[in-house]
């Protein structure tokens, strides 16, 4: 097992009466891509802000390479890179000027700085547009420069906060490839997202957050294997949903039923075996099934199973 680069112990953070993070423990291994999954309001951003020194925890501690990390620990801050969810760039300046500026903030100078700027521009495939103002870029190009700015100082760990929000498919792929290339070179990455397919593709391990807590943490494959039961999404007229739920709940293999967006999400042990019985009940009780969708087990269904909520809520 790789050595731990980042350890979070019993982190708590509250904003007034709202407990944003409640007792989070994390151990990020050097060289892994670690996914932090959760719906909006789960506490991901607050946790990320604590891990990057933007805000201090109310309780608990953070260790980088075994050293206590606080917002004042400047030498440790020099070893982390943050790519905020916002396009944290100066739109009237060129990509080159932006990157030169952020590089200088990290103490880079002269030829070293120019080489690093060229290297990160190559990584995000935007060297030919380097002298154009950021405001002339597409959304995806801005996202790529946003990532490049976090890499200039060659951090030990990179925090990527929802890096593909509002990005076109081409830029999304470019970002995935850049993340994978960086990781192959040994960079540790903490990747927050609410797109489960991104987490499944990129992350070695994922932690699922809900209501300020980590409710599951493992590799995506193991999480799906261990918890990934099947779901079917059934469309039934609203006035007959209650009756339908009462009839199917006693069936063998039906774990529970969740109402979501006017549909019923039925968690099943083995969907294909249980489906005929469900159809039989609908026919017997003259309840029309308007739509039916079988959801393959994935991180989305894992999350549904754990919380009863959809990841994109």
């Amino acid at each position: 097992m790789s050595p731990t680069i980042l350890t979070a112990l019993n982190l708590h953070k509250a904003y007034g009466p709202i407990q944003a993070v409640r007792g989070v423990d994390l151990h990020i291994q050097r060289g892994e891509i670690f996914g932090l999954l959760g719906p909006n309001g789960a506490g991901k951003t607050t946790l990320l802000h604590m891990l990057t020194g933007l805000i201090p925890p109310d309780q608990g501690e953070i260790l980088f390479n075994g050293h206590l990390f606080t917002p004042e620990a400047m030498s440790l801050k020099a070893t982390i890179g943050l790519v905020p969810q916002e396009l944290a760039l100066y739109p009237t300046l060129s990509a080159w000027d932006n990157l030169i500026f952020f590089g200088r903030i990290y103490g880079l100078r002269g030829r070293t700085l120019r080489h690093r700027v060229e290297a990160v521009l190559d990584l995000v495939s935007l060297r030919d547009r380097a002298r154009d103002p950021i405001q002339t870029y597409s959304g995806g190009m801005k996202r790529r420069i946003n990532i490049a700015a976090g890499l200039l100082h060659q951090p030990d760990i990179l925090f990527l906060d929802e890096p593909t929000v509002g990005v076109d498919p081409q830029s999304r792929n470019a970002i995935f490839e850049a993340v994978e290339a960086l990781n192959r070179e040994g960079l540790t990455i903490l990747y927050t997202t609410h797109y489960m397919e991104e987490a499944q593709r990129l992350c070695h391990r994922v932690a699922i957050m809900d209501e300020g807590r980590i409710i599951a943490l493992d590799t995506p494959r193991r999480l799906i294997q261990e918890m990934g039961e099947g779901f079917i999404r059934v469309g039934v007229p609203a006035d007959q949903q209650q009756a339908f739920v009462q009839h199917i709940t006693p069936l063998m293999g039906v774990h529970d039923v969740i109402r979501q967006d006017g549909h019923l999400l039925v968690r099943l042990q083995e969907p294909l075996r249980t489906l005929p019985a469900i159809f039989q009940i609908a026919t017997t009780h003259r309840i029309p099934i308007t739509t039916l969708q079988i959801l393959e087990p994935d991180l989305e269904t894992v999350f549904l199973q754990l919380t009863g909520k959809a990841l994109r809520e």
Partner: peptide, 10 residues
């Protein structure tokens, strides 16, 4: 978010 990025820097 540029302040946020700068605050994460040393």
């Amino acid at each position: 978010g540029t302040f946020r990025r700068l605050m994460a820097a040393p």
